[in-house]
Amino acid sequence: MSPTVFALWMLTVVLDTGGQLAFKAAASHPEAGDGLARWKHMLARPWIWLGGACYVFEFLAWIAFLSLVPLGRGLLLGSINIVVIMLAGRVLFRERLTPMRVTGILLVTAGVALVGIA
């Protein structure tokens, strides 16, 4: 894997995770209320905008990444996002890691590692 491809891959992971976490932070504010008030509350705070910006840049980074690697390989490598987002959810939002989840994380990681090394 060339340094450019690796850097673009990591960039998509960082932007995807950042976007997901920002949307989670935007959506889970406890005093936000309901309906229109909730949306007003979300739009007045930076999280939803940060999430949107992450997604726009991720969109471009993902196209750039796929223009340099075969689609199949790119999709397999991109699966690591699932793992990183779940671990970040555990650290930042104290989401539970059950044995089944840990098994899933290990299997996906092993699969991505196998594709990445080969």
Partner: peptide
Amino acid sequence: LAQGAGAVLIVAGIVCL
């Protein structure tokens, strides 16, 4: 072969999750 095996592991992981 590595990609096929990697895909199987990833799908198994997604099913667990």
